[in-house]
Design a protein around this nucleic acid. Structure first.
Lengths: 223, 223
DNA sequence: GGAAAATCCGACCAAAGGGTCAAATTTTGC
DNA sequence: GCAAAATTTGACCCTTTGGTCGGATTTTCC
């Protein structure tokens, strides 16, 4: 079913035009898929966004499905590569804060990538389940093991380390996926501003560090 | 453009069959829209899920767009009605905990509703922006005012009350919208279990209450 | 019980959708 | 400079899709 174009044989060292066009198409596709999901996106819309005739999309990617997979694979790679390595010797507070900042920068700079991913998850992740149950599961397990080590070393208070990671993701990605909701509620006519992301970042960091006993208990205002 | 069936004139007191069928179709539509978004959903798929011929969908709802709006309006109403009233005289800790529990129960029991809403937001909320900038904005503003009052009354520590609400939503809704991600990572072959939701609920409550200085600072394990 | 209203539903239609093709043009490698 | 390879593109094809229609069946109401 997919043995007709064999992208694997392509020498790839040359093909400057090919590289450029594929990148252009994938970037356009990311936008369209983010907004409409896989089934709701049309190859015509993608071609339009890329400024190319529809036939070119099929020339470079065969089917819509293949293009989608290429886009998703790209995002998965971005996801995994964007995590700085963490070791048990690191300082919990600054490591967690840095991680939250990195995730928020992704939400700010690559919101479409986040939304493509979100779309895929909402649909039950038919195409990326193996990745979720594989690389991603391993990543979470190894990181929560480090958190647990920090706890048992007395470097931070006991927490549910797995849920901690989940909830960091939820709080950071919501600023990309559901941006329109927050910008409406905050009354930002032209979308969220840098300052909104900064404030959100600080709020998340505070929440997480307090939860881990890494910030002093905030004083209540005296009656 | 919509003056041909005039659903408003329908006496509605009779029409038992009508009520039942509309409910059946909307319930099926919620499922299909949740999984495929508006553009990705076909009326045939909805009819199929409802166990009715496609023509009936159009008989009761006119167009796909009208059906979608009916479903979304229903969800918006559910959203707003599910919030217990809060007053400044309430106890912060139990009020926040109750609210988180209520949101988590919605995520557990009406995940499709949450996903339809999420789909709409990811797309930029073309059809519900007025609701976001209206009712929802007001709701958030009135609730964050109460939180602020609690702070100035010394009943809880100073927090960014608006972001607090946003992040409660993010952490609770992620368990509906992205359930597949969490169940893969947790290795649950058959989807999340009740116990998973309980554990998540507790984790969120702890996080939020600690953030508000409503739980004692957790002790670190001594070296 | 019977006529009017409501409901059901298979058959149909025009538009949009994914994908193909072959001829024309451009780029590459020597 | 030129032949082979790569790329471009409009026209085309078949399937899917949202939506309609009209006649059959059921329900309602007196």
């Amino acid at each position: 079913m997919s043995d007709k174009k064999e992208t694997t044989t392509e020498p790839n060292s040359q093909g400057r035009i090919r590289q450029e066009n594929k990148k252009r198409i994938m970037s356009a596709a990311e936008k369209v898929f983010a907004e409409n999901g896989f089934r709701g996106s049309t190859t015509a819309a993608i071609a339009d966004a890329a400024g190319l005739p529809k036939a070119n999309i099929h020339y470079y990617f065969g089917t819509k499905e293949e293009l989608y997979r290429a886009v998703v694979d790209d995002i998965v790679e971005l996801w995994l590569s964007s995590f700085r390595e963490i070791t048990e010797d690191d300082d919990p507070a600054s490591t967690l804060a840095d991680y939250i900042r990195a995730k928020m920068e992704l939400s700010r700079n690559r919101p479409e990538a986040s939304r493509v991913f979100a779309n895929e998850l909402i649909r039950g992740a038919p195409r990326i389940k193996p990745y979720l149950s594989g690389d991603l599961k391993n990543w979470v397990e190894s990181k929560s093991a480090i958190l647990d080590k920090w706890v048992s070393d007395g470097k931070m208070a006991p927490v549910d380390s797995t849920r901690l990671i989940f909830h960091i993701w939820a709080m950071t990605q919501t600023w990309a996926d559901f941006e329109v909701q927050w910008s409406c509620i905050l009354g930002r006519q032209n979308g969220l501003e840098d300052a909104d992301f900064e404030q959100a970042t600080n709020s998340i960091i505070t929440t997480i560090l307090r939860n881990c006993g890494l910030l002093p208990l905030p004083e209540r205002k005296p009656l």
